[in-house]
């Protein structure tokens, strides 16, 4: 900042601009969500039905669980590209342990996810390697582990209590949806009401400021990646139950949908700001986009193009250009 009396003036001008931009940013996810629902409802009579709503909930469960954890990581200014591989790894753990442990197979899956996240966090926070590079590496390495153990063949799940608990329905409501709802509530509370949640935003809003103010920034980063790993473990469990198996390809490319959910939900990749409710909307937007286009019979390749456009559009609206200064 300059050392002169002009500072206040510049700041107040910025804040006005920011306020105006802020309102559009704040409402963007909900506007997009409602618009998409309206378009698909107009195009397909099956879209706005209870049954389809439940399908969307089921489909969104895995994406949403991982995206909630990713929100913390991105708000703190980092990124995790390895989530798809962690989901595959934990789905494999759930599939292997389901035979003997039944429902409790979720515990080894969660544990392995936590460890995978912890490893990411340790290399990033303690080893001071950029999170992008760390998780690009573990994206490949964790997937390698899955391939090594499965030799490429799927591990099927036949344990009925496991399948019933994680993929079944009660009164037509998918259990996965209920589980995700509970997770979302917990994550919302952590983000908005705990010291840790405040620290996550502090680290993303100004890492240097946070360090100088005596926050344990390394610990925040470590916890972030570990929590995301745990959530990947839960997501892997849900995913394995949904497809009755763990496959070597499971979760491939998931990181892109996850990052898209977070960003479309109004959390910019620059960190510092963002919200849990935005990510929930973002995950539903991404899911509905696929669900609705499938229902309309849109060519899957075209679907990718549309998704790409939506992602760029979301960044275009939500990015705070004043804060970054230089766009790289």
């Amino acid at each position: 900042m300059t050392k002169d009396a002009a500072t206040p003036d510049v700041v107040s001008e910025q804040s006005e601009g920011r306020k105006r931009r802020f309102s559009l940013k704040a409402y963007f996810p909900i506007i997009l969500f409602v618009a998409l629902c309206a378009v698909f409802a107009a195009m397909s009579p099956r879209f706005l039905t209870f049954n389809n709503a439940m399908i969307v909930l089921q489909q969104a469960a895995v994406l949403l669980t991982v995206s909630l954890g990713m929100t913390f990581v991105i708000i703190a200014g980092s990124i995790d590209l390895s989530v798809g591989s962690i989901v595959a790894l934990t789905a494999l753990a759930a599939a292997i342990f389901a035979k003997d442990l039944g429902v409790l197979a979720v515990l080894p899956a969660a544990l392995i996810g936590t460890i995978a996240g912890l490893v990411n966090g340790l290399i990033f926070a303690k080893g001071k390697v950029p999170s992008f590079m760390v998780t690009l590496g573990t994206l490949v390495a964790y997937r390698g582990l899955v391939l090594y153990f499965t030799r490429g063949a799927p591990v099927e799940i036949t344990n009925m209590p496991f399948l019933q608990t994680f993929a079944g329905r009660t009164d037509g409501i998918p259990h996965a949806a209920i589980i995700v709802l509970l997770i979302a509530i917990a994550v919302y509370i952590i983000f908005n009401y705990t010291v840790f949640g405040r620290e996550v935003r502090a680290v993303g809003g100004g890492e240097r400021v946070s360090i100088l103010t005596g926050l344990k920034v390394d610990r925040v980063k470590l916890l972030n990646f570990t929590m995301l790993g745990l959530l990947c473990g839960l997501a892997g469990t849900l995913q394995s139950a949904r497809v009755y198996a763990a496959t070597a390809q499971l979760g491939e490319g998931l990181e892109l949908d996850v990052i898209a959910s977070v960003v479309v939900g109004g959390t910019p990749l620059t960190g510092g700001v963002g919200s849990v409710q935005g990510t929930i909307l973002g995950a539903f937007i991404i899911t509905i986009l696929s669900n609705g286009m499938n229902m309309m019979g849109v060519d899957p390749y075209i679907q990718n193009i549309v998704k790409g456009v939506v992602l760029i559009g979301a960044v275009f609206v939500t990015i705070d250009r004043k804060k970054i200064g230089i766009i790289k």
């Binding site: 900042m1 405040r198 935003r201 502090a202 809003g205 100004g206 240097r208 400021v209 946070s210 100088l212 103010t213 005596g214 926050l215 510092g272 700001v273």
Partner: peptide
């Protein structure tokens, strides 16, 4: 750059330490 998180509210900055 070092003292404040500009996105934080006055309250959040004041109690940060």
């Amino acid at each position: 750059r070092e003292g404040l998180i500009m996105e934080f509210s006055v309250r959040e900055n004041l109690t940060m330490a």
